[in-house]
Simulated assay, not measured.
Amino acid sequence: MNEKTAADPADVLVRVGGYVFGFGALATLVTFVPLFFDFDRFPTFAYWLCMLMPGGFLVSLVGLLLSARAQRRRVRERAAAAQGGAAQEA
């Protein structure tokens, strides 16, 4: 499988976290509308949807950390393989 087309689980977490964050940000904007236009207040459930914003941020952050860790591991493996190959040639 091509390394560029393979979907890394960490990349999927970043993407999903971004969507959840965006949905939470939209919910936050919508819940502020009644404050500015003197509408009836939304039910409590709408305000709980705003908590998706930090949740999405957390999911994306975990994905970024996992991706960085995997990238470091791949670099170490390549460096070890290059050193092993150089030792065998000598």
Rank of each mutant, 00 (worst) to 15 (best):
M1W: 10
M1D: 12
M1K: 13
N2I: 15
E3S: 05
K4T: 14
K4C: 14
T5F: 08
A6Q: 10
A7W: 11
D8K: 10
P9V: 10
P9Y: 00
D11Q: 15
V12E: 03
V12W: 09
L13G: 01
L13V: 07
V14R: 03
V14G: 00
R15N: 08
R15Q: 08
R15V: 05
G18M: 09
G18T: 11
G18L: 12
Y19C: 01
V20F: 05
F21D: 01
G22Y: 07
G22K: 00
G22Q: 00
F23G: 00
F23M: 07
L26R: 02
A27H: 09
A27Q: 08
T28H: 08
L29V: 14
L29F: 11
P34H: 03
P34F: 12
P34G: 00
L35E: 04
F36A: 05
F37T: 00
F37M: 00
F37G: 00
F37W: 14
F37Y: 09
D38V: 08
D38F: 15
R41S: 13
R41Q: 13
R41N: 09
F42A: 00
F42P: 01
T44P: 07
T44Y: 07
F45I: 14
F45A: 15
A46L: 06
Y47I: 15
W48Y: 15
W48F: 15
W48I: 13
W48E: 07
W48D: 00
L49Q: 08
L49Y: 00
M51K: 01
L52C: 09
P54R: 12
G56L: 11
G56Q: 03
F57G: 06
F57R: 04
F57V: 04
F57H: 03
L58A: 11
L58F: 15
V59Y: 12
V59I: 14
S60N: 03
S60L: 12
S60A: 15
L61N: 05
L61W: 14
V62D: 05
G63M: 07
G63A: 02
L64P: 03
L64T: 10
L65V: 07
L65Q: 12
L65F: 15
L66N: 05
L66I: 04
L66R: 12
A68K: 13
A68N: 14
A68C: 01
A68P: 04
R69W: 14
Q71M: 04
Q71L: 06
R72I: 12
R72Y: 08
R72A: 00
R73V: 01
R73H: 05
R74M: 06
R74N: 06
V75T: 13
R76H: 10
R76C: 01
E77I: 14
E77L: 15
E77N: 06
E77A: 10
A81R: 14
A81G: 06
A82P: 04
Q83H: 09
G84Q: 05
G84D: 07
G85L: 15
G85T: 12
G85N: 08
G85R: 13
A86V: 13
A87M: 10
A87I: 15
A87H: 07
E89A: 06
A90M: 11
A90N: 13
A90Q: 11
